[in-house]
Design a protein around this nucleic acid. Structure first.
Lengths: 254, 254
DNA sequence: CTGCGATATTGGACGGACCAATTTTCAACA
DNA sequence: TGTTGAAAATTGGTCCGTCCAATATCGCAG
């Protein structure tokens, strides 16, 4: 194993101990280098790696401290999105799978503070002057919705999708009629969240994403991703209309 | 902004261009250092950061190349789980949201090769001698299922969940009765995929995850994440029984 | 005891050096 | 002419020492 990877694991192990003991500060880079018998450069690279994985953060003049955050993780996902072979259709399909149930959960679990933040973002959105400002609050709204679930993974899973799709979304907002429509759809979702109506929240989100898909001309098979309860009996196939999107051969995974 | 973060972004931008042009190799560290007017150390830290975010990989003697993969992403998520705010319950809940629709899509879109791979993994699983071997093929089965959708993002979103939960799963497999049960559940899913029965595939996956949740004693509100179709009309509230899971106050995000 | 300045510590960045793995070059050879 | 294989150039991996800037700590004056 390479030295930096080795040091990375050792730091990780050290971190596991100290963090369990309530300590969040790491020894200095020089101390770590001495302890692991490597150069400070190597230690720094290992720390940088950990930092960009979202586990620790540097404080100039002070020490590295444990501070988990989703930003780097979202960035990492964004990297995959950028260099992977994902199309906008696929990203949108992913949203269609994840966001409706997220909206449902949000309706059930949102705190009053969550709701207030959601309303605040809706207000800002309605008062936005520029398209980019509108878009920013739009993304923030969806992100906050994920936060309402109390499950950080949904924020993690949804945010990169929103951000990566944002260019496309900006184009979609060029249509003058689109903006009030988006606002109206968000209003419907917001009301459902307010009423803790999880079913309506889910279906409203579904329609919202579908509406967006149509406006940007993406071909999403809406029905494909919303399985009804199993039809009683039917043990054999029910092929539907053979949507079967295009498939690339086989991608290997590093 | 710090120099390394700055360089990181510039490399990212450079990567966006070259990668779009079909190039996967980066200029040498020395060339990058010269181009950006920084030291090689700085470039290396930036590269290390990108590498640990999963976008590029180093080849000793050759150049850094773009190579997307889920490994680092899994590692990063593990960090969040270890030090951060993600619990096993939340990860499992995330699986409950994502995997059933993924199974449904897989049933619709799987190619014959996909199916063959799925069957192969099932076979290996049934013949596994050790628990860890069984577990490995179990994870591979779920991962392949995501691959069947043809949407890479599902692989991205599901794999870290599977791997991170794997320790817990290994514990769950200690129960002697659990293994044939898992095998049986996978069989049901596999049959549905084979028959292109998307509805059954989804519900079978749902039950599979629920079964797992029970076996490890995780409290998942199964009903919470499966919104039915909206009851016609109802514009006002339908509060349900106010599930409202526990929420922590407000987490700040680094 | 308090406030503030000097000092020590820490992360940030630099540049050079050497090694090891790989690629490229090119001359000797068939 | 085409091939092979050794030498040279290139590239990442690691180490060292140096300087700077931000922060923390200490100690003295009030």
């Amino acid at each position: 194993m390479s030295a930096v990877a080795d040091v990375r694991d050792q730091i990780l192990a050290l971190l596991a101990e100290t963090h369990a003991a309530g300590e969040v500060k790491l020894p200095s880079e020089r101390a770590l280098a001495s302890r692991f018998s490597v150069s400070r450069s190597t230690v720094r690279e290992a720390l940088r790696g950990l930092a960009d994985q979202g586990g620790i953060v540097a404080n100039h003049g002070s020490a590295w401290v444990v501070q988990t955050g989703t930003k780097q993780l979202v960035q990492a996902l964004g990297l995959q999105l950028q260099f992977g072979e994902l199309t906008h259709d696929q990203l949108l399909e992913s949203r269609l799978v994840i966001e409706p149930p997220v909206a449902s959960l949000a309706a059930q679990r949102r705190s009053v503070e969550d709701l207030a933040e959601l309303q605040r973002l809706y207000l800002f959105m309605s008062e936005a002057e520029t398209d980019s400002e509108f878009l920013r609050y739009d993304i923030a709204f969806h992100e906050q919705l994920a936060r309402c679930t109390g499950n950080g993974y949904f924020v993690l899973a949804v945010t990169p999708l929103l951000v990566t799709l944002s260019e496309t979304r900006q184009e979609s907002l060029v249509e003058p009629s689109r903006r009030p429509m988006v606002l109206d759809e968000h209003r419907t979702i917001l009301d459902a969240i307010h009423a803790r109506d999880s079913a309506t929240a889910g279906s409203a989100m579904r329609e919202h994403i579908g509406s967006f898909a149509r406006s940007v001309g993406l071909a999403i098979v809406m029905d494909a991703v919303a399985p009804r309860r199993r039809a009683a009996g039917g043990s054999t196939a029910r092929p539907r209309k053979a949507a079967a999107a295009k498939r690339q051969p086989k991608e290997s995974d590093g």
